[in-house]
Simulated scan of single mutants.
Amino acid sequence: MEKRLFWERESVQKQVDSGAKKMTSEEIREKRRADRKQFKLDRAAAIAKVAAEAETIFETEGRVVVPALFGPEIPSGATWKPKTAESELALEQESGSPENAKSKGEDEGEGEEEEEPLEDMEHLQLTLPEAFFLAWNFDCLTILDPETDEPLSLPEIWITFQQIYLAPPIPTLPTPELQLDNPFLIHYAVYHHYRSLGWVVKNGLKFCVDYLLYKRGPVFTHAEFAIVVCPVYEDPQDQEVSITNLQNASPFTWSWLSTINRANSQVMKTLILTYVTIPARSRLSREMLNTPACFAHYSVREVIVRRFIPARMRD
């Protein structure tokens, strides 16, 4: 289960406002970056100070002193410690500035306000393949009819998900018959294929692909593979008379493939072209589409595309 980032962030922020010491993972990351930046600044300042002292000794005493880059006066990763809020507060109190005293008095004069309950702004959003996989294979998801608010049966979900992609542009027009090249069937075949092999499948829109494959999930590791779904018609004449416009059904350009492959290679992902063979209409009737048994006539094949990177592949 993925982390609920919004809920965690807002809950921790409320605790911080009330005086509790807790940070979110994002705040910890930003603090580490700020500490590394401050360490570099402190080290550079210490080296400059030692160099200035060596220059002063040369001008006053005539002795040549080589500025040390290491030593007790030069902070290192093992000895340097970031300034904490307590130490900064102690320095402000020692300075005794009237502004600090004024703000302290204002804080003490303020009364405690009643906290408003935190509203959960997050919600789980599933794609159609994810929803049907949970409803069909695990029976752990209930899908309601938006008009009647009644649960849909599995056959109704199956037909409804296919009709979503066949909805006519004008509501008054009748819905076309079920098609063998329905985009829901194509993408669910790929989703079910990799889920059955133990992969965690997520949407790959961020990297311009259809799916991303994780070993354990986005919370634990980065995706290792990027999937591009490529439908292939068993009978080429079916594509000519098809009423659906499948993406990547026609041969894509070399420049497009090179761009996608390069973009995913830069983030250490292997590009996989997953070809889904659509059965011919001549040997399979549309009545088979009334049940998921039609998937027995679809096939999935993978082709790995790797980009040669001379700087990484010399060994």
Score class of each variant (00 low, 15 high):
76 S>N: 05
154 L>V: 04
282 S>N: 07
61 E>R: 14
48 A>Q: 12
120 D>C: 12
11 S>V: 06
180 L>Q: 02
294 C>W: 00
252 F>L: 12
292 P>K: 01
33 R>Y: 10
195 R>E: 10
248 N>W: 13
196 S>F: 02
75 P>R: 02
122 E>H: 08
56 T>Q: 15
191 Y>N: 05
254 W>N: 10
147 E>F: 13
79 T>D: 04
9 R>I: 03
105 G>S: 14
274 T>Y: 06
42 D>H: 06
115 E>D: 05
191 Y>M: 11
148 T>P: 04
264 N>W: 07
301 R>T: 12
301 R>Q: 12
300 V>D: 02
158 W>L: 03
231 P>L: 06
185 L>S: 05
154 L>G: 00
314 R>T: 10
54 A>C: 15
202 K>R: 15
71 G>I: 07
247 Q>C: 12
103 S>A: 13
78 A>M: 07
153 S>G: 14
208 C>N: 14
267 V>G: 08
115 E>F: 00
48 A>M: 10
140 C>K: 13
115 E>N: 01
268 M>V: 09
191 Y>D: 04
182 N>H: 10
139 D>Q: 05
82 P>K: 05
305 V>H: 14
200 V>H: 09
289 L>Y: 02
130 E>R: 09
143 I>K: 06
96 G>D: 02
69 L>P: 00
106 E>Y: 09
177 E>G: 14
79 T>W: 03
219 V>D: 15
297 H>T: 02
254 W>C: 11
